[in-house]
């Protein structure tokens, strides 16, 4: 039994979650606290990957980051950074598809910290950064953590877009969901059953944990 898919899935999901949380926090906070032109459009773009078919998403990513696109050529020629058909491609696919699952609960958590509390802190002479650190984040962390867990789980299960942009190269880009598909195609029930069992167990655990985080004292 080859455990590379398990190892790769964990690696890809961790990397994707780091990006999701870092970028998602900025997006979620801005959407919750600021009014700006194009807010609705940004919302639609971020949420898109919840509804758009993963293959379509993969196609867009391929068009954006592949060798035929200026961005893809620039990344590869100037920076030596190849995304398509590498594990980095799987990270991009996992990031894009898990972002909305982080942004939605994180934004709701930020919105849940009323403007009055933040104004109270401003009136006491505090700067915006200080207020985020001492008031907003400590009150919103449950929602943020729940979002992190959900988006990590979504990243581990990414299939369609990953297949499009990273391909199915055993030992190189074959993540667990892709490996399951592969095993079923080969009629390798033994491998398929183990991988399916692992993912099922993992999904149950994640939802249970996410549920616990959202119940809070405050």
């Amino acid at each position: 039994m080859d455990f590379f898919p398990l190892y790769l899935t964990i690696k890809v999901s961790f990397a994707a979650t780091v990006f999701t949380v870092a970028i998602g926090l900025v997006i979620a906070w801005t959407m919750a606290k600021k009014e700006f032109f194009g807010k609705d459009i940004l919302d639609v773009v971020v949420m898109q990957s919840l509804v758009i078919p993963p293959t379509v998403l993969g196609y867009y990513l391929l068009a954006l980051l592949g060798k035929s696109s200026p961005l893809g050529r620039f990344l590869e020629d100037a920076l030596g950074f190849q995304i398509v058909f590498t594990w980095k491609g799987a990270v991009v696919a996992a990031f894009v598809s898990s972002l909305p699952l982080f942004v939605k609960p994180a934004r709701a958590a930020f919105e849940g910290v009323g403007a009055e509390l933040e104004n109270a802190a401003r009136l006491l002479g505090k700067s915006e950064i200080y207020i985020i650190r001492t008031v907003t984040l400590p009150l919103a962390w449950r929602g943020i953590l729940a979002g992190t867990v959900m988006s990590f789980a979504r990243a581990t299960g990414e299939f369609g877009a990953t297949l499009m942009i990273a391909g199915n190269i055993p030992g190189l880009t074959q993540t667990m969901p892709v490996a399951i598909y592969d095993a079923v195609q080969r009629a390798d029930d033994y491998t398929a059953n183990i991988l399916v069992g692992l993912i099922t167990l993992f999904s149950f655990t994640v939802l249970y944990l996410a549920g616990r985080f959202t119940r809070g004292r405050f």
């Binding site: 009055e116 104004n119 401003r122 009136l123 700067s127």
Partner: peptide, 11 residues
């Protein structure tokens, strides 16, 4: 800005 006004406010 609010933080520089030194005005106390009880909501």
């Amino acid at each position: 800005p609010i933080r520089s006004r030194r005005i106390g406010y009880v909501f």
